[in-house]
Design a protein around this nucleic acid. Sequence first.
DNA 1: ATGTACGAAATCGTATACGATAAGTATGGG
DNA 2: CCCATACTTATCGTATACGATTTCGTACAT
Lengths: 235, 235
Amino acid sequence: MVDIAFGPSVVVQTAGDTKPGSKSEQAYTSIKARIVEGVFSPGYRLVLAKIAEDLGFSVVPVREAIRRLEAEGLVKFERNIGATVSGIDPTEYLYTMQTLSIVEGAATALSAPFIDSAAIARARAVNEEMRECLDHFDPVRFTTLNQDFHSVLFEQCPNPHILDLVHRGWNRLASLRSSTFRFVPGRARESVREHEGLLQLIENNAGAEAIEQAARRHRSATLDAYLAQASALTE
Amino acid sequence: MVDIAFGPSVVVQTAGDTKPGSKSEQAYTSIKARIVEGVFSPGYRLVLAKIAEDLGFSVVPVREAIRRLEAEGLVKFERNIGATVSGIDPTEYLYTMQTLSIVEGAATALSAPFIDSAAIARARAVNEEMRECLDHFDPVRFTTLNQDFHSVLFEQCPNPHILDLVHRGWNRLASLRSSTFRFVPGRARESVREHEGLLQLIENNAGAEAIEQAARRHRSATLDAYLAQASALTE
DNA sequence: ATGTACGAAATCGTATACGATAAGTATGGG
DNA sequence: CCCATACTTATCGTATACGATTTCGTACAT
């Protein structure tokens, strides 16, 4: 739809990708996908030689890929020690959620003036699907749809940098969730309601300030809900 | 004071640095410094072999360094073509300023509850120095002090991710300014006034919302002022 | 039994070498 | 005189090789 969704998780393209032919690039994409999909869980040790052999490459392009992933915060790379998939102590989770909250709010506010009625209709349709998910209890699908919802809103975002930050946050969280995600049904229901409210604000051409606040309130509530269970997250 | 200032410009540490011993790390630091200080202006062609020879290293660590810089947005690296210091068409400038505005506002709001009277005093002192700069017309020093001012406020920022984003924005802008910076004296005077207002808000324990708004308004005004001259920026 | 020291294995870091690709240049035809 | 094509050159991309560092296991002494 908006971004590429495959399997249980979602990999969002981040800016700065080189042409696909480069092995360094392939390694980057491949490793990132495996992290985001949860094949490589947090704490997983990424041994250069092993990954290189897996992919049939030499270590050099793999190193580059790892460095890029490090800059995105997906892995930690220590000299003479090696790379591990970034851990997620509750604190780190809070940081990420808080940052995402801010950045998503900004993206929503910036995009609002450019959202036409067609986009709103699409967003509303996605939100309806989310509502249905509530009955069938499908958390994975719910999360994917949630990102789809926001993606529709952000489609016309006039600032690609902000969008990039949002995507990085999503990827980060996807990596965390694949391993330790838990669903909060009550919160999810509320979320659907808030989405509808946000759409109405946009339809009524509310000020950017109001929209941003709404978006931030939404995120903030989500954050609180998840924070309660954050202690369950392992290092 | 807060961050390391040397020469006319300021290089802000960004998260993700490896131990200093690594050549890859040295290359990273060295190239970044030269970009931020303006030795490598936007558009400058970074030839791997040449840089490697300059530093006395081989190309491999240099490549890694470039990749990290690319992920931070400081350089553009195209397959089989090479790396160039990121350009700054007015649009890109707008994106960066807008993003920085949002992120700085958030950082200010988050930090506010943790700012004690001593920090406020220091911030105020810096702001006074800025006021003095207005008379002597020292734009470079003014910019440095401006970052110092915010650094004092952000010292206790509870979210390092946000802080990292702020620093990246500063580095980015520093790179741009070194080559094409122009000073807007009227705007600068206003800026000093707004800083004082912000400090008073914090002293009075104003809500995070109000503080964030003030910070954002400030940035927004700055943005507008610089945007007027943005067309003067070269690709 | 525990702590320490030494050695071996695993892994990372970097240099060098060579193949691949794109940009620049010259030459020949229109 | 201009354009297209072949060739040369500059630069990047990756593999391989080897040295450096860390970690882990084992043996020894207390």
